[in-house]
Amino acid sequence: MSTPRFLTLPPGVRSRYLETAVGTFAALEALPVSGVPERWPALLVPGLTGSKEDFIAVLQTLAQSGRQVVAVDMRGQFETSGPDDPGAYTCAALGNDVDVLAHVIGHGGPVHLVGHSFGGLVTREAVIDGRTRFASFTLMSSGPSSIVGPRERAGRIMMKELPEFGLESIWHTRMEPEALAAGVPDEIIAFLRKRLFANSQTGMFAMTGEVLSAPDRSEELTQVEVPTLVLYGEHDDGWPPKTQSEMARRLNAECVVVPGSAHSPAVEAPETTAAALTRFWNAAETRLPG
């Protein structure tokens, strides 16, 4: 579970809705202070129980480098509605949404793509399918295949409890106790509760199944010529840091380990994370034509 550092939008960041051919998506958009982006835009995709708000702490800093930066709620997440069809929440279906969003944000031009946790499994679908020209691809606290360890165990409990007890069970047995134990402020706890119950229960169930059964597509990803970064916290409790490091080696990708961070570097170490992304994006732009 990610806990946004603050919920008040910084200067230059606004809420908006993106109209696309596959539906309307809730988003947070950051623009440079001048209001005129000079660099290629970026699209940020959150994890399973997260939302666009997980990127609030980095949006302003990322935009200051001269680009439009957009964080979205995926289909069925928080403020983006979704159908009751489980097939709408497969990695492939959500990856198609990413392709469409990137086209809208980039107006057909290159877009930097970032996927956090489950969002990494979703965004790699869009990279592998080859329909969109991405300026770069960042896997943030994500792995090569299905999640393991304590988050795998939590996911399997969710799969058992959701059909019978619904989102109430997840909140009262796991998310609320974790937030209280971590000393999360009351207003943030209220937001986390509001966010969870706004999710599509069908979507939550289907996406949990996806993160628990995702195949390793690293070999296919290596066939795509796109600058790639693997970024994760040194104490990540999702995919083990060793697993992510090995994935970076297999992908011939850059690798950044964020000191002091766990599974949500954009929340836990926003300045370090934003600096790493900006450096990587700027370097990628110097290597690509156009």
Rank of each mutant, 00 (worst) to 15 (best):
M1P: 07
P4D: 07
P4S: 07
R5A: 15
F6M: 14
L9F: 03
P10H: 06
P11F: 13
S15G: 12
Y17E: 07
A21F: 04
V22C: 03
V22G: 01
F25H: 05
A26L: 01
A27I: 03
V33Q: 10
V33P: 00
V33D: 11
W40C: 02
W40F: 09
P41Y: 10
G47Y: 07
G50R: 12
S51G: 14
K52S: 09
K52N: 02
K52G: 01
K52T: 00
E53S: 02
F55N: 06
I56L: 15
Q60R: 15
A63Q: 06
Q64D: 14
S65G: 13
Q68R: 15
R75L: 08
R75H: 06
G76P: 02
Q77C: 00
F78D: 05
T80E: 02
S81A: 13
S81H: 07
S81T: 10
G82Q: 04
D84Q: 08
D85A: 00
G87P: 03
G87M: 08
A88W: 06
T90V: 08
C91E: 02
C91A: 14
V98I: 15
D99L: 06
L101N: 02
A102Y: 11
A102L: 10
G109D: 12
H112R: 04
H112W: 06
L113Y: 02
L113K: 03
V114C: 03
V114T: 10
G115M: 08
S117E: 08
T123A: 09
T123H: 04
R124M: 05
A126E: 04
I128C: 06
I128Y: 04
G130K: 08
R131A: 08
A135R: 13
L139T: 06
S142G: 14
G143C: 02
P144L: 01
S145G: 15
V148F: 03
G149C: 07
R151L: 15
E152W: 13
A154N: 08
I157R: 14
M158S: 12
M159F: 09
L162Q: 07
L162W: 05
P163L: 12
L167T: 12
H172M: 07
T173E: 12
T173R: 11
P177Q: 08
L180T: 11
L180H: 12
G183A: 05
G183Q: 09
V184H: 13
D186F: 06
D186E: 15
E187K: 10
I188Y: 01
A190F: 04
R193D: 03
R193C: 10
K194M: 11
A198S: 13
N199L: 00
G203P: 03
A206R: 06
T208H: 12
L212T: 15
S213N: 15
A214R: 05
E220V: 01
T222E: 13
Q223D: 08
Q223N: 09
Q223F: 00
E225S: 14
P227Q: 08
Y232F: 15
G233E: 14
G233V: 03
D236K: 07
D237P: 00
D237A: 10
D237I: 08
W239N: 09
K242D: 15
S245E: 13
A248P: 08
R249N: 07
R249H: 09
R250E: 11
R250N: 08
L251M: 10
N252W: 02
C255G: 00
V256H: 12
G260H: 05
P265G: 01
E268H: 12
E268C: 11
T272W: 04
T278H: 01
T278I: 14
W281S: 00
W281G: 00
W281N: 00
N282S: 09
R287Q: 13
G290P: 00
